[in-house]
Simulated scan of single mutants.
Amino acid sequence: MVNFTDDDEGKSVVMGDEKVGMITEVEHGTAYVDPDPGITDRIKATLDWGDRDEDTYPLQESRVDTVTDDEVRLRDDL
């Protein structure tokens, strides 16, 4: 079970060798991912100014393989 916290905001979301997005917000343990973050999104997430918008999607816990200090790695067998 993965319990995301505010500390996970700004982390890269990676699948295989490819960065597929960035966590822009965490709300009630659910991480929301922007699949194509720009520099403004990265700064907002780093400064905890992120909001969820129409370009962010909830990250399903069942898709997460590991969480490190720098990234969230998705399962390869999806």
Rank of each mutant, 00 (worst) to 15 (best):
V20I: 14
R73P: 03
L78R: 06
A45E: 07
T66E: 11
I43S: 04
D34V: 07
D76G: 08
M22Q: 13
D41L: 03
V26H: 06
M1C: 11
T68V: 05
E9Y: 07
E54Q: 08
D65Y: 04
A31D: 05
H28P: 01
Y57L: 14
H28F: 12
E71T: 02
D7N: 13
L47G: 04
V14H: 07
V13F: 01
V13A: 01
D6C: 05
T56H: 08
V67Y: 06
V64H: 09
V13E: 08
L78H: 04
E9A: 15
P37Q: 09
T56N: 09
E9R: 13
R63A: 13
E27V: 13
D55W: 12
Q60T: 15
D48G: 15
V72C: 03
A45K: 08
Y57P: 06
D76T: 04
K19Y: 05
E54T: 10
E61D: 15
R73S: 02
H28C: 12
I43T: 11
F4G: 00
L59T: 03
R75P: 01
Y32H: 14
R75M: 06
Q60Y: 14
T5F: 10
D65I: 00
V20A: 03
D65S: 12
Y32W: 14
V72A: 04
T24K: 07
V20E: 01
D69G: 12
T66S: 09
E61T: 15
R63I: 00
D7G: 11
M1F: 14
P37S: 05
M22I: 06
H28M: 09
R42N: 05
K19L: 07
D53P: 12
R73D: 04
T46K: 11
D76I: 01
V14I: 09
V67P: 01
D7S: 15
D53R: 14
D51V: 13
